[in-house]
């Protein structure tokens, strides 16, 4: 009767990670690039969407609402599928890396928009009224008075969105981008005797990113408090 043996555990298991550090590094770089580019794009687009949703122009409000409701209720995998396989059929062809950034940005922009909008709603109405009384236009009001306070209010939920974004980049592995998860899949196949070590290696990669994000957020929070 077979007992609970675990061949391949021990020093050889770690070798599977150490021998392939260059491959890990390459995947890690792609994950970082995907995360950073998609985060910047999602923050910009999401903030623009939030501005639309609170703007005095009804068509802009309608567009913002429709965007958020459509995108936020679509699974990210479906979004990827749409971008990677449907866009080329209408003549929009980019590299798979760009497609992945696009899909991630579209999806997380909706989440950023809702976080920022809740921040805007949390800013005292008196602030916007006072700004208007001083003669500031809508965009000046938003840019100089409301948004800076709104962002301070929603640092934590924004952090959650960005942290989710980092982990969601793993879906790109299924759509032509060999990032960290793709590398883990590749190395687990190549090293069947040390699957757990390879998985742990991949986990460490994601932890580096999410912990760095958490650190940055903690700094930002401390600064936000001192400004207030």
């Amino acid at each position: 009767m077979p007992s609970g043996r675990n061949p391949g555990q021990g020093s050889t298991a770690i070798d599977a990670v150490l021998d392939n550090l260059d491959i890990f590094a390459e995947g890690f770089r792609r994950t970082v690039a995907l995360s950073v580019l998609a985060a910047v794009a999602a923050l910009l687009v999401g903030t623009a969407l939030a501005a639309m949703r609170v703007s005095p122009v009804p068509p802009l409000r309608w567009f913002g609402t429709a965007y958020v409701q459509t995108v936020r209720n679509t699974p990210l995998t479906v979004m990827f599928f749409f971008v990677v396989f449907v866009l080329p059929q209408v003549g929009v062809v980019f590299s798979y890396f760009v497609f992945a950034v696009v899909a991630l940005s579209i999806y997380h922009a909706a989440l950023v928009c809702e976080a920022v909008r809740s921040g805007i709603n949390g800013v005292d109405v008196g602030q916007a009224e006072a700004a208007r009384a001083l003669g500031l236009t809508f965009s000046q009001n938003l840019r100089l008075i409301v948004l800076p306070q709104a962002f301070r209010n929603v640092l934590q939920p924004l952090g959650s969105v960005l942290s989710a974004l980092i982990r969601n980049t793993s879906i790109a592995a299924a759509f032509g981008v060999q990032e960290l998860t793709g590398v883990v899949q590749r190395l687990t196949t190549a090293n069947p005797d040390s699957v757990i070590a390879v998985l742990l290696g991949g986990m460490v990669g994601y932890l580096i990113l999410t912990l760095a994000l958490a650190g940055a957020l903690a700094l930002a929070e401390r600064r936000a408090v001192t400004i207030r």
């Binding site: 396989f85 798979y96 592995a173 299924a174 759509f175 032509g176 060999q178 793709g182 883990v184 899949q185 590749r186 687990t188 196949t189 190549a190």
Partner: peptide, 27 residues
């Protein structure tokens, strides 16, 4: 397919090819 044996084989057999990996052959 990402993480498959054929993907590893083609890396060795045709190193100058540009490999694109999905999670299924239908894709």
């Amino acid at each position: 397919v990402s993480g498959s044996t054929p993907a590893e084989n083609i890396r060795k057999v045709a190193p100058a090819a540009q490999l694109v990996l999905f999670d299924g052959y239908s894709k």
